[in-house]
Amino acid sequence: MTVTTRFLVELKTAAEAAKVAEGSFRRDAAVRIAALEQERAFAFRRLNLMQAIAGAMASAEIEEIAVASAFATLRTRLGWNSDSEARSEVIARFGQVVLAMFRAPDEEESASNVPEALAGFERWYAETRGSPFWLLFEHQIPDTPRVDF
């Protein structure tokens, strides 16, 4: 093998290694971007839902009305027009979050219970359902055929 041939082989090896490194980086970056994208989407879904529930509960003077208002908002946001055993279980578990929110203004230590209650609900949902709660908000809009007359 001549010096020139060896040199060209080394350049080719270096080029292939750079190509592999770039491909690996791009795959890792795509995975990280997807994770950050989901994290952002869930954060905004969390914010939007909790703002809506807080708004629904704002005028309630008694716990029962606050809970009913919060549950109605949750059902509406999820598009749940009917109940099932699974849905009822989710709503009942979410009740802990609602109660923590309702009781927070009255008790100083309860304010820290709201994030804990929400995190606990999210953990429970993920463990029992095998997916994050916030995926429920990914409503697929079916394609509607367009008909011209």
Score class of each variant (00 low, 15 high):
residue 3 V to Q: 14
residue 3 V to P: 12
residue 3 V to Y: 14
residue 3 V to D: 09
residue 4 T to R: 14
residue 5 T to G: 10
residue 10 E to M: 11
residue 12 K to Y: 09
residue 12 K to R: 11
residue 15 A to T: 01
residue 16 E to R: 01
residue 17 A to I: 09
residue 20 V to I: 14
residue 21 A to V: 04
residue 21 A to T: 10
residue 24 S to L: 14
residue 25 F to V: 13
residue 36 L to G: 06
residue 43 A to K: 14
residue 44 F to Q: 11
residue 44 F to T: 01
residue 46 R to W: 00
residue 47 L to T: 05
residue 47 L to E: 10
residue 48 N to C: 13
residue 53 I to K: 01
residue 54 A to F: 02
residue 54 A to K: 06
residue 55 G to Y: 02
residue 56 A to W: 05
residue 57 M to D: 06
residue 59 S to Q: 13
residue 59 S to V: 01
residue 60 A to L: 12
residue 62 I to Y: 10
residue 64 E to H: 09
residue 65 I to G: 00
residue 66 A to D: 08
residue 67 V to Q: 12
residue 68 A to T: 09
residue 69 S to I: 01
residue 69 S to W: 05
residue 69 S to P: 02
residue 70 A to N: 02
residue 75 R to Y: 06
residue 76 T to L: 03
residue 76 T to C: 08
residue 79 G to H: 00
residue 80 W to Q: 14
residue 80 W to N: 10
residue 82 S to M: 08
residue 84 S to H: 04
residue 87 R to H: 10
residue 88 S to V: 00
residue 90 V to D: 05
residue 91 I to G: 05
residue 91 I to D: 06
residue 94 F to H: 08
residue 94 F to L: 08
residue 94 F to Q: 04
residue 96 Q to G: 12
residue 97 V to M: 10
residue 97 V to W: 07
residue 97 V to S: 00
residue 97 V to E: 09
residue 98 V to P: 02
residue 99 L to Y: 05
residue 99 L to K: 15
residue 101 M to R: 03
residue 101 M to A: 08
residue 101 M to F: 00
residue 104 A to M: 06
residue 104 A to C: 10
residue 105 P to L: 04
residue 105 P to T: 01
residue 105 P to M: 14
residue 106 D to W: 10
residue 109 E to V: 13
residue 109 E to H: 09
residue 109 E to N: 12
residue 111 A to Q: 12
residue 111 A to E: 12
residue 113 N to W: 13
residue 113 N to I: 06
residue 114 V to S: 11
residue 115 P to Y: 06
residue 116 E to A: 15
residue 116 E to D: 15
